[in-house]
Design a binder for these strands. Sequence first.
DNA 1: GAGCACTGC
Length: 734
Amino acid sequence: MSKGNGSLNAKEPLYGFLPRKVTAVQAQSALEHDINPFTKQPHSAQYKKILEARKKLPVYAQMTDFFKMFTDNQVIVMVGETGSGKTTQIPQFVAYSDLPHTRGKMVACTQPRRVAAMSVAKRVADEMDVQLGRQVGYSIRFEDMTEPGTTFLKYMTDGMLLREAMNDPDLSRYSTIILDEAHERTLATDILMGLLKALVQRRSDLKLIVMSATLDALKFQKYFGIRGNEPAPLFKVPGRTHPVEVFYTQEPEPDYVEAAIRTVLMIHRAEDPGDILLFLTGEEEIEDACKKIKLEADDLVNQDPDSVGPLVCVPLYSSLPPAQQQRIFDPPPSPRSGSGPPGRKVVVSTNIAETSLTIDGIVYVVDPGFSKQKVYNPRIRVESLLVSPISKASAQQRAGRAGRTRPGKCFRLYTEKDFMKELEEQTHPEILRSNLANTVLELMKAGVKDLVRFDYVDAPAPETLMRALELLNYIAALDDEGNITALGSIIAEFPLDPQLAKMLIVSPEFKCSNEILTLTAMLSVPNVFVRPNNQRKEADAAKALLSIPEGDHLTLINIYNSYKQNEWDKNWTWTNYLSARALMQADNVREQLKRTMERYEIDLVTIQDPKKLYLAVRQALCNGFFMQVAHKEGEKGGYMTLKDNQVVNLHPSCGMETQPEWVIFNEFVLTTRPYIRTVTEVRAEWLLEYAPSYFDLKSFPDGEAKRALQRAYNKKAGKRGNDDSGPIKKKKKI
DNA sequence: GAGCACTGC
């Protein structure tokens, strides 16, 4: 709407507002108005109450500066520490200035996590006195809570916006894009930053706000600087947290778990009431530490019940069932007697408590300085998890968890010198630690021609990019010139690893797309097998009953089918030692993938005879995973991966009855030893037939595997001409 | 004879 628009009368709260030239005074008058400018309804009583609370947020005090900076600049970097109110307020300020609803546009605000996108959208809908899903909404995988034509402020996951960018590289629905929590440097946020840097140059009408923590601001300012040297302007808002006193050890601790337990008990004996948060690295470590803390704390209470209160220890990690995760919000235990010492709660958690989950009432943080981090080795194409020292930024984030409700203390189990000298400033962004096959394809689909010269915030290693391009070329997603193919364009549409998508797309040729659809869904959710420590035998026996001897991939299909047949029986997953949560998720994913298949007219077909069906599934598997093949070498059950010659063993969870000569595996895991996990028997002749360029023997490294392939090749050549019983030939060219 | 840091589409 613009000045002089005759359809507006002077009583309208937004009368005289010029998009992007709105002042803070104007916005404030609209906020105080009795009429909601977006619904034209009178504001509720609750609206006024919330507005008073909003006015106390630090960011509110800087409205004037913000509106001016937004008017004057296309790109802004914003820093707002915890408690500043930036995530809820800035998008609203933008909406009042940008007035996207008057131009059929939207303001998007991205979040790295689904729950954040949902809960912030709900809060902001309340603040704006609108119904969630109307003017204010959110969009996450499996749930689009927006109304086309009505929603103008949309919270969404960063991955969701990246998906949209693939099909509309200009992101033309948006007038302003806000990237929140940019300092977390998720893969999706990093890619979006690269795409948006180029996009703001193409689209002068698009505004961009990058919100981050203090430490990264200058880097982003420089990255988004215009015309060479001039950095993007910075908008800074102070936080509102309580002080946290930090303590270091005098000497390095040789055993951080032991030191952590000791520190927790020391706090319990000697410090004022208040809950403790201890960071450890993984499930096993956490369960173990909980047991030990509980034992020792009980001892202390028994020895000295007059001065030591009761203690409860609560584990927290993502694979814990939601009901058990809820225990972190329980109040601490009550004193044993009315006048006895107060109880204390200890939460022992993975990194999940560093960003994803906030626990109120934490006063003490114990930080041993480690976490499990993903690392990618492009040489052997393997992602693995390694216990590594955290960064300074991460240590600060952990310490901050002690000061949410009142002043707190953080005990770092390393020396101050190590903190200053040894810890990296920032955790390496995910883009430097991941296999980029998926990312490269997404970028290509978003119209990026030259991946090596793309303007990344942090450029990945050239070898990582080469590996990604190589894989995409082998599965025919990219042609030999490096251009995206028609097939590659469809592969990119599936929310799957490219190999899985390729396998799914070709599966109708093998008449088993129904089963491959199930398999891809099962492979994209967390482990479905549950194996409680005290019932391992029972769990393994239950698994054996559902196993298919030719391979774990077939077992996964069988499990899904049995699950669906027994859906009426609420106890079925439980009695079979399977995760109901993971299976429900698989079902959900399967439905989503099915819709994408329908969009591209990929037929859903199956073969009635189970023997033939399983054979077809294994052949289809070769079409996607021919790069993940191992050959049996020697008599002791050892395998060697093809081409990169890694010596591996079948993972103990593998359910095959024999050790076949050729197998395809879903993942390579490096734990106590190198293992291949989720494994299925295949035949050499299939590999040669479905991936001839990859199995081109001329370029193959010498060894047992090559000789075996050569024999299969010779046999095949000898048979040619009198054997036409091969798989169904391509009927539809993609 | 072992594990599953955390997100996201």
